[in-house]
Design a protein around this nucleic acid. Structure first.
Lengths: 217, 217
DNA sequence: TTATTATTTTAGACAAATCTAAAAATTTTA
DNA sequence: TAAAATTTTTAGATTTGTCTAAAATAATAA
């Protein structure tokens, strides 16, 4: 069994390793809001427990065991987010912090019953997939909006950035889950994208486009 | 804001002070599964934060501030128990440990929404009353006999345990529906209760008293 | 390819919560 | 009421997770 803190490190390493692998000490420190020295200490501890592979100065990767633990926390986090939005009427930009706490509750009975109560959801309110109890993700076909070319169409099915600033920005632009979009133009100068959303032409920066997930069907 | 550990101490002191006030160091140590020395340390800390009144060797009482904090944790615990039983089909004897964890989640929005979702329950699955967000308990038609203080009177109007062993025990003691009782004394040692029933003085354990419901009118 | 800069690790310290062992205070018993 | 037993507190140590400052390593630039 891992401590609350250890769980947080594993989760953060899991998320960061989707961007780059192995994960750097400083990247973890920034995400966890702590100092690099503290990260090194914790990494050593996780390494002794065989939850991560660690080579000095080279960064960390999760072991199979560490990855399963991390995915389990992600599962709990996303199920709780569904609960908060579907049952308690939280808005999608209000759920993250509370789910950060709830994800550490230790009871597999609780989480399986919650899954059932929510009718086995496959994605969370941000469109991120929810793994099953064995750590397997359902196959979901989506692409970053920033990867689409002019004239390509699709439906917004998720985001890969969950700060409330970002989510509020999207709401203001009318870019919410389920909306149908078409790419009109990709500006060479800065990579920004011109879109058609419900007959409205809007422009978004490449930074924003990168975090919008599109299903092409 | 209090730590997880501080919250636990406050909650335990709150519950123990219903049996005897002030609360002894050893009583807390036993409940929290720790050593008396550790309790003394924590009590000093809580005292500095003005959450408890502490006199060396005399035990502790909660301050108004400490009591409110404790009641708030009790509120959260009981609301989560209702959720687990009513929504996730937990049995009433499976909920306690999970609720012990859930009660420490910090989000008043969460707890108010949960209250609403559960349709503002007044009692938890064990029949214990759920205080409102200001720490007030609703006046209930029934009170557990174990909650009465010396000299309080009432009429036996129900039980919250239906095993035949328990019911036979009550018959033997003459504690049947409709009988008028008066609490003579609550024994500090084990929380057992001395009663007057039809001019007879009898003693019952706290465990039994907990399952006898009294109407005070 | 050496110098500079950035990143990471080590060493030693600190705060929170706990522990053991011994001392102090209180309560009970004789 | 003095001795014995119990309860509580103190003193000093330990564990977990963190920190600062300095040293080591790696990456980048001249």
């Amino acid at each position: 069994m891992q401590s609350y803190t250890e769980e947080n490190y594993l989760k953060v390493i899991y998320h960061l390793s989707e961007i780059s692998n192995p994960v750097q000490t400083n990247a973890i420190a920034e995400r966890i809001q702590t100092k690099a020295a503290s990260v090194t200490d914790m990494i050593k501890k996780l390494s002794e427990k065989e939850l991560v592979n660690y080579v000095k100065y080279q960064g960390v990767t999760l072991t199979e065991k560490g990855k399963l633990t991390a995915i389990n926390i992600v599962r709990k986090h996303r199920l709780w987010e569904v609960f908060l939005v579907d049952k308690l009427n939280f808005k999608w930009d209000e759920v993250h912090e509370v789910a950060e706490e709830l994800e550490h509750i230790q009871s597999s009975l609780l989480i399986e019953r919650l899954d059932e109560f929510l009718e086995f959801p496959k994605v969370d309110p941000h469109g991120d997939p929810i793994p099953d109890q064995h750590g397997n993700f359902a196959e979901l076909a989506f692409v970053k909006l920033s990867k689409l070319s002019p004239s390509e169409k699709g439906t917004i099915t998720g985001v890969s950035e969950h700060s409330s600033a970002f989510l509020k920005h999207l709401e203001k632009l009318g870019l919410t889950l389920g909306k149908r979009i078409e790419v009109l133009e990709v500006i060479e100068f800065d990579g920004s994208v011109a879109l058609d959303v419900e007959q409205q032409k809007i422009n978004i920066s490449r930074e924003v486009a990168k975090h919008i997930l599109i299903s092409k069907y």
